[in-house]
Simulated assay, not measured.
Amino acid sequence: MSETTQPAPTTRRGQAKAARRGELLAAAARQRARRGFVAVRLEDIGAEVGISGPAMYRHFSSKNDVLDELLLDISERLQTGGDEVVARGGSPDEVLRRLVEFHIDVLVTKPDLIAIQDRDLHSLSADARHRVRTLQRRYVETWVSVLVDAAAAAGRALPAEEARVRAHATFGLLNSSPRLPPFDVTRLAALLTDMALAALLVD
Rank of each mutant, 00 (worst) to 15 (best):
D73M: 11
P7C: 07
S52M: 04
I116D: 06
R58P: 03
P182G: 08
T11Y: 04
L24W: 03
R35D: 11
G81L: 01
A157K: 10
L113W: 02
H168T: 12
Y57E: 00
Q79T: 12
A16S: 13
R133M: 15
G90H: 07
L147R: 02
T80N: 10
A153P: 00
L201E: 12
Y139L: 08
R137I: 10
A29P: 01
D73A: 15
R137E: 14
A190K: 06
A198L: 08
G53Q: 03
S2I: 06
Q31L: 15
T193N: 04
A47H: 10
T11D: 03
A150R: 00
L201Y: 07
Q136I: 07
S177W: 01
G82H: 12
R129M: 07
V165R: 14
L174G: 05
R34T: 11
E94D: 15
T4W: 10
V38R: 13
R119P: 08
L201N: 11
R164S: 12
A198V: 14
A26W: 04
A26R: 12
L200G: 05
S2V: 10
L188A: 09
T5M: 05
A169P: 01
K63F: 00
F60G: 00
L191M: 14
R97C: 02
A169L: 12
E94R: 14
L124W: 02
T80R: 13
A29F: 03
P54H: 05
L180Q: 11
E161W: 09
L174W: 04
D93M: 09
R137W: 14
V85E: 00
L180Y: 10
R88N: 06
G82Q: 13
S176G: 13
A160Y: 11
L107Q: 06
D194V: 14
R13N: 11
R41Q: 13
V106G: 02
H122F: 10
V148S: 05
Q136H: 08
T186R: 11
R131N: 05
L121F: 11
R12N: 13
T11G: 07
R32D: 02
R88A: 14
R187L: 15
A126S: 15
H103T: 13
V86R: 02
A189T: 10
I116W: 07
A19C: 03
V49A: 05
V100W: 02
L72M: 10
P182K: 09
V148Y: 00
S62Y: 08
L174A: 06
N64V: 15
D112R: 06
D93A: 15
Q15K: 15
W143S: 09
P178H: 06
S2Y: 10
V108A: 09
A199W: 10
D93F: 07
S91L: 11
Q79V: 11
F60Y: 04
S125F: 09
E101H: 04
D184K: 10
D120A: 08
V148Q: 05
D127C: 06
V202G: 08
A26T: 13
L135C: 09
H122G: 13
A29T: 00
Q117P: 01
L71T: 03
T109W: 07
E161R: 11
V140H: 09
V40S: 01
A153C: 01
A190L: 13
V100S: 04
G36Q: 02
P111W: 07
T142H: 02
A27V: 03
R13V: 06
V86H: 03
E101D: 07
R129K: 12
N64T: 15
G22V: 05
P7H: 04
D120Q: 07
R88K: 14
Q31N: 12
R30C: 05
R137K: 12
A167N: 04
